[in-house]
């Protein structure tokens, strides 16, 4: 196991190299020279040149690339052009209550758990009545729900539930861990609604794949009840695709949601990215892209390790 983890970590090095190369090519080469933009409309050529020197843009490209890799190795992503804060501080926050990661998590984690719970229950029920009117109409509703833009959901539900019916605050934030929930109920509700349809269809397919397997017939023929077949046999065997999907979606719990966070003023990482894009804040977007990629690699490894836990047939080599 330890050897496997070690080997996987070594395999990450070429991918990490690729990510640094891709982000560098994208932001430092294709993105053009940001000095003129940074200096503003009335800058003199001398001021623009000073900014170029300050940012190291007058160096040859290979030198800039090595500087960038050096920074990343030291976990130093530089400073934001817009706020002049270090990006490390922007992402981690000054305190726990101020932490964008925890803000994103307090939105995404409840959505994640509610979604898993609801979609598994609904999908299991659907497999029991498969082919019936209930099954068919739920499937069509899920497909229909997936065909509406997520932005349209957010706009409409925020307007209707928050503004028209005034059931919830329209948008806002309280940094304290108790106070923030008042503002989070509506975004959590909307987030669950806009992602549930796809999940139900996914789980239904997985469960239906299992239901026709021989072991289910065996379990039935030895007289086991529906409940025990469903929960002890089918759910257990369906765990592998479930784990792949859910663990690989975990980086997004930390990265937050671009749309929901910016609409509801949740000060998480998704909102940070929107601000960075609006301010043309190159270093922040670059750092977020890199961090997103690293998170994805970490969770990929975790998901592979979990296979072994849930499926004794899988051996690591």
């Amino acid at each position: 196991m330890l050897g496997y983890i070690l080997r996987r970590l070594i395999y990450m090095i070429p991918t990490l190299f690729g990510i640094t190369l891709l982000t560098f090519l994208l932001f430092n080469v294709a993105g053009g020279d940001p000095a003129a933009q940074l200096a503003g409309l009335h800058a003199t050529p001398q001021q623009i040149e000073d900014i170029r020197v300050e940012l190291g843009l007058n160096q040859p490209l290979y030198k800039q690339y090595f500087d960038y890799v050096g920074q990343i190795v030291r976990f130093d992503f530089g400073r934001s052009w817009a706020t002049k804060q270090t990006i490390g501080q922007m992402i981690l926050g000054r305190s726990l209550e101020d932490s964008p990661i925890l803000a994103s998590l307090s939105l995404t984690l409840p959505v994640f758990l509610l979604n898993i719970l609801l979609s598994i229950i609904i999908a299991l029920v659907l497999t029991q009545v498969r082919g019936s009117f209930l099954d068919q109409s739920t499937m069509v509703s899920c497909l229909a729900a997936m065909s509406i833009s997520s932005l349209a959901y957010i706009l409409f539900l925020q307007y209707y539930l928050g503004y028209k019916l005034a059931l919830f605050p329209i948008s806002g934030w309280d940094p304290s861990f108790f106070g923030r929930w008042e503002y989070l109920i509506l975004p959590i509700l909307i987030f669950v609604i806009l992602s549930l349809g796809g999940k139900i269809l996914f789980y239904r397919t997985i469960f239906l794949d299992e239901i026709y397997q021989d072991y289910v017939r065996t379990a039935r023929s030895k007289g086991l009840g529906t409940k025990s077949v469903l929960f002890k046999h089918i759910l257990r065997n369906a765990l592998i695709p479930i784990i792949t999907l859910e663990v690989l979606s975990m980086p997004f719990l930390i990265l937050g949601s671009i749309l929901v966070e910016s609409f509801f003023a949740v000060p998480g990482l998704g909102g940070l990215l929107v601000l960075a894009i609006n301010n043309a804040d190159f270093p922040v977007i670059k750092a977020m892209t890199f961090i997103g990629a690293v998170l994805y690699m970490i969770f990929q490894l975790i998901s592979d390790l979990l296979y072994v836990v849930v499926d004794p047939k899988v051996r690591l080599y």
């Binding site: 990510i19 891709l22 982000t23 932001f27 671009i258 892209t289 997103g292 690699m297």
Partner: peptide, 14 residues
């Protein structure tokens, strides 16, 4: 693998 590692929404925004 490199391109796939960057989350889609970040990739297209970038």
């Amino acid at each position: 693998t490199t391109v796939d590692t960057i989350p889609y929404i970040l990739l297209i925004s970038a």
